[in-house]
């Protein structure tokens, strides 16, 4: 079991535990669904490690774990879009735009599946998702700036949740774009660097999310008091 706990899985598990501790009393959506989403992510990551080990042990018979991450893409797209819809909906009605965004992602996903099957990663969908989430994050901050009401952002769960998304998806742009472009030149060194960058981005993402859950707990305590 311990061999399944990589650094990424460990960070995700910590975030999952924090979400359970901080949000167990919170029945409001989308916060109520955070733990479930993180549990799904942890299970996928651990299964991913498991399938990777099987594949590395027997490349002739086992399949790479890519299909798992292709499956996770669907949940990521749906859940993160839903969370953004809840956050942005406080300022403007964004649902129609988000439905269009999801339709574009679904089309791209279907196209990629049709083209190369489930065992090759849906790179185009991932890139489109990256762009979509970065745009949603920027729009959320724009609305926050425009809002006349003051919010204590240092303790705003929404602000830090979106910050995590922005750091992860915007920060991974370079690696995604350049890494694929430079694929012919890949060396173990470059691959290691890419992995290290993703580990760092994961820590940033889940670090921000952990703080966001803690802020949510504080907010709940204040409203209860």
């Amino acid at each position: 079991m311990l061999r399944l706990i990589t650094l990424n899985v460990f960070v995700e598990l910590v975030c999952f535990v924090v979400s359970v501790v901080c949000l167990n009393k919170d029945r409001s959506w989308p916060w109520h669904g955070m733990s479930l989403f993180l549990l799904l992510t942890c299970i996928t990551e651990m299964l991913g490690v498991h399938f990777k080990l099987l594949y590395l042990a027997d490349r002739a018979h086992a399949r790479p774990n890519i299909w798992l991450y292709n499956g996770l893409l669907i949940f990521q797209a749906l859940f993160i879009t839903y969370v953004f819809e809840r956050f942005i909906n406080r300022y403007v009605r964004i649902r129609p735009v988000m439905i269009i965004g999801l339709l574009i992602l679904a089309t791209s996903y279907g196209y990629e599946l049709y083209n190369h099957g489930i065992f090759i990663y849906n790179e185009i969908t991932n890139t489109l998702m990256l762009i979509t989430f970065v745009l949603y994050s920027l729009y959320y901050y724009y609305l926050l700036l425009k809002d006349e009401n003051y919010i204590n952002l240092n303790r705003s769960p929404e602000f830090w949740w979106v910050a995590g998304i922005l750091f992860f998806y915007f920060g991974s742009t370079a690696t995604n774009v350049f890494f694929d472009y430079l694929y012919p030149y890949h060396s173990p060194d470059v691959r290691y660097l890419s992995k290290t960058i993703f580990r760092g981005l994961n820590i940033l993402l889940y670090g921000c999310w952990c703080y966001s859950f803690i802020c949510k707990k504080w907010a709940l305590q204040i409203s209860e008091a």
Binding site: A163, F167, T175, F179, L193
Partner: peptide, 29 residues
Amino acid sequence: MGVADIRSLVLIATAIFLIAPVFLLAYVL
């Protein structure tokens, strides 16, 4: 393009793509 160049390119680009959100968040705060 050598491996060292690729590493530097990816590193610098990532740093820029990370600094930009930092500035954005700092501005919003």
